[in-house]
């Protein structure tokens, strides 16, 4: 496993800057939570996803559309799960 080094992370982070707030939050939350465990393949796959137009990304990540590419579909699923998990953790902290 190759650790993703700076400035690679900065570059990815900048590419997570999108035209919609929802995408900013979903992509950055995922990047923060998972990037240290990325290997080369995952990093490349994430970049492929970042090349998608904002509206398509939005529809995929908000579960309005399914990706036909299995790997992308899996990645979308992990981005959604990572966000829901972190949101739940935050919500529980707030409850307490």
């Amino acid at each position: 496993m190759t650790e993703v080094q700076l400035p690679e992370l900065s570059r990815l982070r900048w590419r997570c800057r999108r035209g919609m707030l929802e995408l900013d939050l979903l992509l950055n939350t995922f990047l923060d939570a998972e990037y240290t465990s990325f290997d080369i393949q995952q990093s490349e796959l994430f970049e492929t996803l970042l090349d998608y137009p904002d509206q398509v990304l939005f529809d995929l990540l908000m579960d309005k559309m399914q990706a036909s590419d299995i790997d992308i579909a899996k990645l979308v699923d992990s981005i959604r799960k990572a966000n829901t998990k972190i949101s739940r953790e935050k919500a529980n902290v707030t409850e307490r």
Partner: peptide, 13 residues
């Protein structure tokens, strides 16, 4: 449905 999805994703509720 959209609001429900938004809440589950961003709030975990």
């Amino acid at each position: 449905p959209g609001i429900r999805q938004t809440c589950i994703t961003f709030l975990g509720i």
